[in-house]
């Protein structure tokens, strides 16, 4: 008998279940792209059969970090840049949980860049949504790792001397096995991509363009956007690392030239970290968290480990 009966609960799920009954007033500005992520998640989760209590949403710090204040699941609003290590450990502790991590571009590609690289490398079975608005929003508009070269802000008064990070290429090189970009202004595509990411067994990275109407007026609303799968101008194989790499490079360049390309870029079937660890005998088949509720589990004792010390 499980101690976690929300997990695998097969029942009708209403989209409203993910909206808190006493919804805190969102702190996001009117027109903020973050509303688009929230909406897409609320639509996607019931459609993939997840109930609020089997989902753990782990966020970083910034406007995006407030996501789990407005999405009614189990939530862990962590610290700046550290959502991924918290999230992946929760998945290792109880792999029945549906773990979704989220944060901004500064959070994920800047201060948490090391964790992003390694979580992708290890291919943890989880979804990571990066709210990419190319700016630090909550701290009032400073230049971020995805801000374009030349971007002027209070911390770069003469324009940004740095070229922006390439989020999709970085995810690919690091080892992510599902990589997509979507935009808040494209809710149907966003919902479908989130569903695919959740269903994917491995580290699924979504670079989610979320316009900041207050601090990044240059980016407009990320319209018009092009879906690279639907457009006839683009033809590449998402299962091919080489072709994906080329398409990503083009997409990253195009954004700063005014063309918003979105869609799926890479899908790979390499086994998830959880599966690799189980294969090596380094992770139990039964979720570890269940063990503490088993009345008859025979806990190992140090007394039985003393032989080689005698």
């Amino acid at each position: 008998m499980s101690a976690f009966n929300a997990i695998g609960d097969e029942r009708e799920i209403d989209r409203d279940e993910f909206t808190p009954g006493l919804e805190p007033q969102p702190t996001w500005c009117p027109g903020c792209g973050d509303f688009g992520v929230l909406k897409a998640l609320k639509q996607a989760l019931p459609e993939v059969g997840k109930t609020p209590e089997e989902v753990l949403t782990v966020t970083g710090i910034g406007c995006s970090g407030k996501l789990n204040s407005y999405l009614d699941t189990y939530g862990f609003h962590t610290i700046h840049g550290r959502s991924l290590p918290v999230a992946r450990a929760a998945k290792l502790a109880n792999d029945g949980l549906e773990v979704i991590a989220a944060g901004g571009d500064g959070d994920g590609y800047g201060i948490g860049g090391n964790h992003f690289m390694h979580t992708a490398r290890e291919n943890h079975d989880m979804t990571y949504i990066v709210f990419n608005n190319e700016v630090f929003g909550l701290t009032k508009g400073q230049t971020s790792p995805t801000s374009p070269k030349g971007h002027k802000s209070k911390t770069t008064p003469h324009g940004n001397a740095k070229s922006p990070i390439r989020p999709l290429s970085l995810a690919l090189t690091s080892g992510a096995t599902y990589i997509a970009r979507t935009a808040a202004v494209n809710p149907n595509q966003a919902k479908e991509i989130i569903k695919e990411a959740i269903d994917h067994d491995g580290f699924a990275h979504i670079d989610f363009l979320t316009q900041c109407p207050t601090w990044n007026k240059d980016a407009k609303q990320y319209v018009p956007y092009v879906d690279v799968q639907e457009s006839e101008d683009y033809d590449f194989d998402v299962n091919s690392r080489e072709e994906a790499q080329e398409m990503m490079f083009e997409t990253e360049n195009a954004l700063h030239e005014g063309t918003v390309l979105t869609g799926r870029y890479f899908v790979d079937e390499r086994p998830s970290y959880q599966d690799e660890k189980k294969e090596l005998g380094e992770m139990p088949e039964e979720p570890l968290a269940e063990r503490y509720f088993e009345d008859d589990y025979d806990w190992e004792r140090s007394y039985d480990l003393l032989e080689r010390h005698k």
Partner: peptide, 14 residues
């Protein structure tokens, strides 16, 4: 990451 992982695992009940 190490300490954050311990926090995450403990939060999930281990």
């Amino acid at each position: 990451a190490a300490a954050a992982l311990a926090v995450g695992a403990s939060h999930a009940g281990v």
